[in-house]
Design a protein around this nucleic acid. Structure first.
Lengths: 299, 299
DNA sequence: AGCAATGGTAAGGATAACTTATCATTTTAT
DNA sequence: ATAAAATGATAAGTTATCCTTACCATTGCT
């Protein structure tokens, strides 16, 4: 019933009209003139009406005149769409949503995003941050394309690409007895006031696990936690990346025994592939953080 | 640079998504499953991005999700256009402009248009009327598709299809000496007050031409002319079709010597073809007035 | 009149599209 | 748990579509 009008046939019609003849149009389209003749005849037979007058010249019929602007419209629409989709496919347009843990957001993302917008200036980036559980849930719910986090729970619904190891250490004020030390053993913390935080669970399952049970404080908010530490109320443990360098009076001492580290990496859904923009972001992340095991974290 | 996205490929994508799988879609499209696989692969390679996830199920990728509504839009646009053009081609929609001489407009068009709208209820008809010169100029300027008129001037820019012969006669009031006659010779009009009108030039070039020179009146407007005739001021000549039957006191007496007639027919441009709607109108005119030499004009 | 355009036509070849047959996986049912 | 059925991918071969070469008819221009 409804004829299938091919975009290419319409293009031929437009070229013939614009160039004023079959030969000229054929030249422009890199075809031969009979190719156009046949294509036009086919289109005419589909519509049941002639598009060009019969006598010698390539003049549109009244019906052809009626079709012309409509063909032009659909072809323009097609080209606009093809262009748009290509730009998305080629990662020149689009949007990425990324979720990270706060330490990554503040320590790694600034440089990374600067590199990213330089490489992909027209891609929109949305950055969310929260704890590792939150990041993983955002990825699972597909509210973000990618997460940069440590693995919260192994689950084959996720694909995790490791980026770096982030060792846990003790954080204390500069007047604390441990402040000048190069390393510390967990047993030395016995009797100290330990403030737990969101990352403390990294110690669970290690020989230092008992420290957690003896701790009376839990503070999730980083601002509050640093305020407590600066006030000299106690000490805490943090992965190095999460240690806030900007607080002058705080010190980070690596925990040598047990050696505890979290593994930071890129998290994505294993079942779904990435949008083109997210592919660009993933590549950017891997290029920038992948090989260099990021040893430049010392101050 | 810009890939050529075929309407059919987009249709395949939509069918696969809507039917939830390659097999189901293939069934609906009367194709086999590999045909779809290959078409999709081709489209994906043109865009440089996968549209469906790899693992078994036919789930769209995020890029596929992005494409879907746009494909749907363009396909819908295509179908709408194809439908519209087909309706025009099949003369189910469109517009015809017709110009006629007044006699045709008042005596022939009412029935003809009634037949036409019955056969083509969705076609818009615009009817213009004026003298034969006006009609011919309208056709030449392509402001109308068709004219129904007598030929004003022969010119190979026009195609003229004769419909009927329309004999000239004398028109007078019922109390005129000629009123009861079956025929009249031009010599019998000698000494009568002859009022010329737009059709009087039909006598030019005949033996009765001298009558025109002796006439002091010329009235182009039909209402004015009939008023003059009803007032008994004079007589005139008119083709039978132009004789206004509705005036009870006026009589028409055929002119037997010389026998003068105009030929009424369909006029169109010889260089341009007709719009589909105009083709419908032409056919309707020829069917309704072509063969029957329209002898049913007596009252 | 003769030449150089125009577009149309016929036959054959290149390309694209589709089908049949088969395979590897996954899902469903027993 | 295992068989059966359904999924999509792949390879080879067929068909249809599209395009080209070669030629013709007509028109317009020197």
């Amino acid at each position: 019933m409804t004829p299938e009008l091919k975009i290419q046939q319409m293009r031929y019609v437009l070229a013939i009209v614009d160039e004023g003849g079959f030969h000229a149009a054929a030249r422009r389209l890199h075809r031969t003139q009979p190719a156009l003749s046949l294509a036009i005849r086919d289109l005419e037979s589909r519509l049941g009406q002639a598009l060009f007058e019969k006598g010698g010249k390539a003049l549109p019929t009244p019906f052809g005149d009626y079709c012309l602007p409509r063909f032009r419209g659909l072809v323009a629409e097609h080209d606009r769409l093809a262009q748009e989709l290509l730009q998305h496919a080629e990662q020149r347009r689009g949007r990425v949503d990324v979720a990270t843990v706060p330490s990554v957001a503040s320590r790694l993302m600034p440089q990374l995003l600067a590199d990213f917008v330089k490489a992909y200036p027209d891609l929109q980036v949305n950055l969310h941050d929260g704890n590792a559980d939150y990041v993983q849930r955002m990825v699972a719910a597909r509210e973000v394309d990618l997460g940069i986090t440590s693995l919260w729970q192994v689950d084959d619904a996720f694909a995790f690409t490791p980026l770096m190891h982030d060792a846990v250490g003790v954080v204390c004020r500069d007047d604390h007895p441990l402040a000048g030390r190069q390393a510390v053993d967990w047993r030395e913390l016995d009797g100290q006031t330990l403030i737990r935080n969101g990352t403390s669970r990294l110690l669970a399952g290690t020989e230092a696990a008992s420290l957690l049970e003896r701790s009376a404080f839990y503070i999730s908010n980083m601002i509050s936690l640093t305020a407590m530490l600066e006030a000299g109320i106690g000490i805490t443990t943090l992965p190095r990346l999460a240690f806030p360098e900007e607080y002058q009076r705080l010190r980070f001492i690596p925990l040598s025994t047990p050696h505890v580290e979290r593994e930071i990496g890129v998290l994505k859904s294993a079942r779904h592939s990435l949008s083109p923009a997210a592919q660009a972001m993933e590549r950017c992340i891997l290029d920038s953080l992948g090989n260099s095991k990021n040893l430049a974290l010392d101050r």
